[in-house]
């Protein structure tokens, strides 16, 4: 147990791992704050300011419809952006680290 624990601590301190972790966090933290604030703002506005939401934009479409469809749109866009970011900026480095870590835990004498 101690041997493989050392291996994990060693990987955690390595520059390569810290780079993967910070890439992940630099994308995810603002994204989560952003979509959560946008959703809460939508729900609070819809329940407390129906007058604003009812303002017509074009034909039958009003602010509320645009905001609701906007939630769908931002969800799809953020999904696409996250997938792209993970594929291009994180996957390869994470996979390399996976093999390094498994190699380390094995050579230290016990299975992961």
């Amino acid at each position: 147990m101690r041997a493989s624990a050392d291996a994990y601590l060693e990987v955690q301190r390595s520059a390569a791992f810290q780079e993967v972790r910070s890439r992940y966090r630099r994308f995810v933290v603002p994204a989560v704050i952003g979509f959560f604030a946008w959703y809460v703002a939508y729900v609070v506005t819809a329940t407390t300011a129906p007058g604003l939401m009812a303002r017509p934009v074009a034909g039958a479409v009003n602010v509320a419809m645009l905001a609701g469809l906007g939630q769908f749109l931002t969800t799809f866009l953020l999904t696409w952006a996250y997938a792209r970011h993970a594929r291009l900026r994180r996957d390869r480095a994470a996979l390399d680290l996976r093999w390094t870590t498994q190699e380390l835990t094995r050579t230290r004498g016990d299975a992961p």
């Binding site: 955690q12 992940y24 680290l97 996976r98």
Partner: peptide
């Protein structure tokens, strides 16, 4: 932390 972000030992 290492396992969750790299998949080591998954």
């Amino acid at each position: 932390e290492v396992r969750s972000l790299t998949g080591a030992g998954a």
